[in-house]
Nucleic acid binder design. Structure first.
Length: 811
RNA sequence: GCCGAGGUGGCGGAAUUGGCAGACGCGACGGACUUAAAAUCCGUUGGGAGUAAUCCCAUAAGGGUUCGAGCCCCUUCCUCGGCACCA
């Protein structure tokens, strides 16, 4: 489908001109309201595919629209460059990750420039360059100094393929690695953590941000706040150092129904409590659990298994002794790693008790309960029974009463448990920012002094994954002197999770060239927070949660004065092809370049926006592009037409009305990311203008005004075409410095309306009347219609009038 | 299983949030132009009945509220996302 113009020539011409004139360079401007519109920066995988364009082109349209509305718009771009994929690809291709990454950056920058976006390239960031990661390290030190970074030995998620630890957020629900789908195992390792749990409650507060409910829900679920109680069960008689097993429960009201205790197989007390006769059985169960993959362990519908360890603990509320089991449905990582078994009121405990023939004691009466045995766990509300002094209380007040009583006796109390764990940031890989810490035999853990940053990633390290950080084998890197005592010391050899780099890049954009500081406070103050963030929903509990944590932490440290990084968030959908998600293995990946070569960036931009609602994604269908090509051709033809002869006033008024109606519609649709309907309105307007010209039904003033507005409205979507035609019409360069057209509400309103006349809700006639018609007049017109009378068997019982829309006669 | 979003022509999707269902576009069919094709332009395009004006049916299925339901309520079915032994 040929275009009327040569996109390659026109687009590169204007891109060169815009670059030469620094048209999109951004400065703080006190005279204009600021607008920070950010798109998630791409990972340096090597090539932009159409999904990147789908994320970037519409957000550029929105940024351009904001510019035309008079905002001083910051819409930057950069590259997320550290991380495993780069390292793995580099290994595979026998190239150094730095070289591989920078080649990709170059190629992707070239591709990005072809979009024709308003990016200010002077602000570009590449997270793997020392200029950037120096400040990533510096920020690590600030968190460390604030007590928000700590080192701890803990069971960590280990990916055997990636040969590194993973944060909990990077392990998929099925227990596999987010990146390579390998089953994740556990390893006990000394690792660095960020204290994100300290912010759990604040992270649950979404009241000051305007984000999709879906994302807020996902974050809430991830944080997983549960209100409940911690209860102490006695094990004094075993003469151990520890005199109790603590459990977490959300149902302290059911504590009298405890008939057994379950410990996670990895629970530290297991080895001490297991009686000699049970030792073999317990050992083999623990080993079996360990062998089983996370995938099996996490499947909920699996039959419950466990073994009795021979020991008992005391329920201090009623003095009863209950047997202790280990079972893998108790998770070491949640609560206290111990569960009180209340089979009558918990489905899992019920299943377990059934299987191992343990007593089931009802302590919350179901409605109409007469003392009979339960056939399934009752988890609803009810009155407390079989519960000593608490009998007769409703279970909600019972919770409070039990907690109060336990607190008085010092055997437990109210508490809150979270699902979220601290963020593990150590990675045993090469391609990341080195953690700026030193281990000294006499001084212990010592931070690298700020003036010694960056701790450079040595270029000549062997970067094959071995399960230990490649930096471990680089003597020159590892051996250093202690910054405190100057004695011999070893550097931390792990690198940081790349999500650390992307947790603050939006701050760097706002403050490029900040010299000897990470950013300038006055620039952050001017631009931040980000007004509109756009990107994929796949980052809901990783990047988006980490970035929020980071901002809150830096605020508390005193580096910032706002609470949330991204005021508004919008998730675009996913582009598929051949009815499937694009992937290399399926061979259905759409590369934008070939389309840009043939039909140009403007057409690709237009097509992506026209596919459907932005948040729904859609399928890339080659034929669909034709619609955009035809439309642009029609616009091209319109602009080339010479002025029409003066038309009749009434018809011109029709065009003026269309113009103002279209401006209003397009303005409102662009504002709320409804690109598909904005383009539909522009197409309709284009079609109208073509018809009006053919009919000579428009005067030259209205015509010129219409063409001018059409080009301005087209400018965000098709920046090159609009600029070209703008110049052809003789208007001042650049169209991208002109304001968006405004509309006149009177002209946008309909002068005449078609009223639908219904009888009993069925359309029976249409009458064209003045928009200013009164209710009585409208009803009279409707009732006097011949057609209507034919459908009315009886006189009207009721007449409903909706101004501008319809008259419904109930007969 | 739980939470969220959704189900509208051959296809992508519109529908001012309770008021003409199918805007806009793709595709298809017919016509004009052409030696021919492409491109372009014009017309038709949810189903059914009728020569026609027009009428009937139709927004996953069934029921309800309403003068009026794609939109609100109830039930059922399907699709897609997320969560899922979290005590």
């Amino acid at each position: 489908m040929p275009l009327k113009y040569d996109p390659a020539q026109i687009e590169s011409k204007w891109q060169d001109r815009w670059a030469a004139d620094a048209l999109y360079r951004v400065h703080e401007d006190p005279d204009k309201p600021k607008w920070y519109e950010l798109t998630m920066f791409p990972y340096t995988s090597g090539n932009l595919h159409i999904g990147h364009w789908y994320a970037m082109a519409p957000s550029d349209v929105h940024a351009r629209f904001r510019r035309m509305q008079g905002y001083n718009v910051l819409h930057p771009m950069g590259f997320d460059a550290f991380g495993l994929p780069a390292e793995n690809a580099a290994i595979k291709n026998g190239i150094h990750p730095h070289i591989w990454t920078m080649r990709n950056v170059e190629n992707m920058r070239r591709q990005l420039k072809r979009i024709g976006a308003v990016y200010d390239w002077d602000r570009e960031v590449v997270t793997s360059l020392p200029d950037y990661y120096k400040w990533t390290q510096w920020l690590f030190l600030q968190l460390f100094n604030a007590g928000l970074a700590y080192r701890n030995k803990a069971p960590a998620n280990w990916c055997p393929t990636c040969q590194t630890t993973l944060a909990n957020e990077q392990v998929l629900p099925d227990g596999t690695c987010e990146r390579c789908s390998t089953a994740v195992t556990r390893r006990d390792l000394e690792q660095w953590f960020f204290r994100i749990t300290k912010y759990a409650d604040e992270l649950l507060d979404f009241s000051s941000i305007d984000w999709p409910d879906r994302i807020n829900t996902m974050q809430s679920n991830w944080i997983g706040r549960s209100q409940g109680a911690e209860i102490s069960f006695g094990i004094e008689e075993y003469g151990l150092e520890t005199k109790e097993i603590r459990v977490f429960t959300t149902r302290p009201d059911t504590v009298f129904g405890v008939t057994f205790m379950v410990l996670a197989p990895e629970h530290p007390l297991v080895s001490q409590l297991t009686t000699p006769d049970k030792s073999d059985e317990v050992q083999s169960y623990i080993e079996e659990t360990r062998r089983r993959s996370e995938i099996e362990r996490l499947s909920a519908d699996k039959e419950k298994t466990g073994v009795f360890i021979g020991a008992y603990c005391t329920n201090r509320l009623n003095g009863e002794k209950v047997p202790i089991f280990i079972a893998d449905y108790a998770l070491l990582t949640y609560g206290t790693g111990a569960v009180m078994g209340v089979p009558a009121h918990d489905e899992r405990d019920f299943a377990y008790a059934r299987k191992y023939d343990l007593p089931i004691r009802t302590v919350i009466a179901p409605p109409g309960w007469g003392g009979e045995d339960l056939v399934e766990a009752y988890t609803g509300p009810g009155e407390m029974v079989n519960s000593g002094e608490f009998v007769g209380l409703g279970n909600e007040e019972g919770k409070l009463a039990v907690i109060k009583s336990m607190e008085e006796q010092g055997i437990g109390g109210g508490t809150i448990s979270y699902r979220i764990r601290d963020w593990l940031i150590s990675r045993q890989r090469y391609w990341g920012a080195p953690i700026p810490m030193v281990y000294c035999n006499s001084c212990g853990i010592v931070p690298v002094p700020e003036e010694d940053l960056p701790v450079l990633l040595p270029e000549d390290a062997e970067f094959r994954p071995t399960g230990e950080s490649p930096l471990t084998f680089h003597e020159a890197f590892v051996n250093t002197s202690c910054p405190k005592c100057e004695g011999p010391a070893r550097r931390e050899t792990d690198t940081m999770d790349t999500f650390m780099c992307s947790s603050w890049y939006f701050l760097k954009y706002a403050s490029p060239n900040s010299g000897d500081s990470a950013f300038r406070p006055e620039q952050l103050k001017h631009w931040l927070p980000v007004d509109q963030y756009t990107g994929g929903a796949e980052h809901a509990v990783m990047h988006l949660l980490y970035a929020r944590f980071f901002v809150k932490a830096l605020r508390d440290i005193g580096l910032l004065d706002f609470d949330e990084p991204f005021v508004r968030l919008y998730n675009q959908g996913i582009i598929i092809s051949d009815r499937q998600k694009m992937s290399k293995s399926r061979g259905n990946v759409i590369t934008p370049d070939e389309y840009v070569d043939t039909v140009g960036a403007d057409v690709v931009r237009g097509y992506l926006m026209f596919i459907g609602p932005w948040d729904q994604g859609g399928e890339w269908v080659d034929q669909g592009i034709n619609g955009i090509v035809r439309w642009y051709n029609r616009v091209w033809d319109l602009v080339e037409k010479s002025d029409p002869q003066l038309g009749k006033g009434k018809s011109s008024r029709q065009t003026a009305h269309m113009l103002h109606k279209t401006v209003k519609k397009v303005y409102q649709d662009l504002d709320r990311f409804h690109f598909n309907t904005a383009l539909a309105a522009l197409m309709e307007f284009t079609n109208h203008l073509g018809r009006a010209w053919d009919e000579g039904a428009v005067d030259s003033e209205t015509w010129n005004e219409s063409i001018k507005a059409l080009l301005l409205m087209l400018a965000p979507t098709a920046p090159h075409l609009a600029e070209e035609l703008w110049a052809a019409r003789g208007y001042d360069y650049s169209i991208h410095n002109w304001p968006f057209p405004t509309w006149d509400e009177t002209l946008a309103a309909e002068e005449e309306v078609t009223l639908v006349v219904q009888v009993n809700g069925k359309v029976r006639d249409r009458v064209t009347v003045s928009a200013a018609i009164t209710e009585d007049e409208a009803k009279e017109v409707a009732l006097s219609s011949e057609r209507i009378r034919a459908f009315m068997k009886n006189g009207p019982r009721k007449v409903v009038y909706v101004p501008g829309r319809l008259v419904n006669i109930v007969a």
